[in-house]
């Protein structure tokens, strides 16, 4: 396949940045999207140009590191996958492909397609954990009985890989799906209930301080989430938040 790529190039966080056109030929339909970018970068390096910076790590859909807004969609046109799992067979010969960074005020661009997603880390630090005594007499988590339905829902929420596609897809740049998943994962389990009130209040406060937008329930996040995290997690977070605000 021969393709035209329109890639966002930005030297550093203060640079204005712009879309730059690149031609790439003889792309195999079996390549992953990131492999295609690797090939482009090799060509750029051979020409003595600066390669395109982009994030990636596991390249098997589990770490959440790869990002990219491809042809108007987070992680490109396929469903239930990350960019590293996207294949070039999803595109046609002679296509023009827009490749942009995830855009949100709370995800500033560091270079080219790499954005700073540490705002998610700070939300996690605000409450996305349980406090456990690790001095040696820790009780095995499996010793506490958990209702199967709750266990399944908590497990599903816990599959969130923190990639940020929900924020990138949302017209409001809202992080509610991510935070909803992190809140739900603990709120459903007995170990998480102990700190539930503070957790939801603190995580939402941090989310707001980071400058994410307000959810208006468009549902774009749920559709674009590589792990299929459900909007029900946002509803659960709203319930948790409202009852926590009433308590204190």
């Amino acid at each position: 396949m021969n393709l035209t790529l329109k890639i966002w190039r930005q030297k550093n966080k203060d640079d204005k940045g712009k879309l730059v056109d690149y031609k790439i030929n003889e792309v195999s339909p079996d390549m992953s999207f990131l492999e295609m970018l690797d090939v482009l970068n090799e060509q750029l390096i051979n020409k003595g140009e600066d390669p395109v910076a982009f994030d990636h790590d596991c390249r098997e859909g589990i770490c959440g590191m790869c990002s990219l807004f491809i042809n108007g969609q987070a992680h490109g046109p396929d469903r239930g996958i990350t960019t590293c799992q996207l294949h070039m067979r999803m595109f046609k010969d002679e296509d023009t492909i827009f490749i942009e960074p995830f855009r949100a005020t709370a995800f500033p661009v560091i270079k080219d397609l790499v954005v700073d997603r540490t705002s998610f880390d700070r939300i996690q630090h605000a409450g996305g954990f349980i406090s456990v005594n690790t001095s040696g007499n820790t009780i095995d988590a499996n010793a506490i009985p958990v209702n199967k339905h709750d266990a399944d829902e908590a497990f599903e929420a816990a599959t969130c890989i923190g990639c940020g596609a929900c924020v990138a897809s949302c017209k409001n740049s809202s992080a509610m799906l991510f935070v909803g998943a992190k809140v739900s994962q603990f709120a459903l389990l007995p170990q998480g209930k102990v700190e539930a009130t503070d957790r939801v209040l603190n995580m939402v406060k941090q989310m707001d301080e980071e400058g994410f937008g307000n959810c208006t329930n468009t549902g774009a996040c749920e559709i674009e989430c590589p792990k299929g995290i459900s909007l029900e997690n946002i509803a659960r977070m709203n319930r948790e938040y409202l009852s926590a605000s009433l308590k204190g």
Partner: peptide, 26 residues
């Protein structure tokens, strides 16, 4: 507030792929 949360818009954004027209134009 929501406009402030994304100051630089996408050059290409395919909103119709994941949300209804109604939800995007309230």
């Amino acid at each position: 507030k929501n406009r402030k949360a994304r100051q630089i818009p996408y050059a290409k954004n395919n909103g119709a792929a994941n949300s209804s027209w109604m939800s995007r134009n309230m």
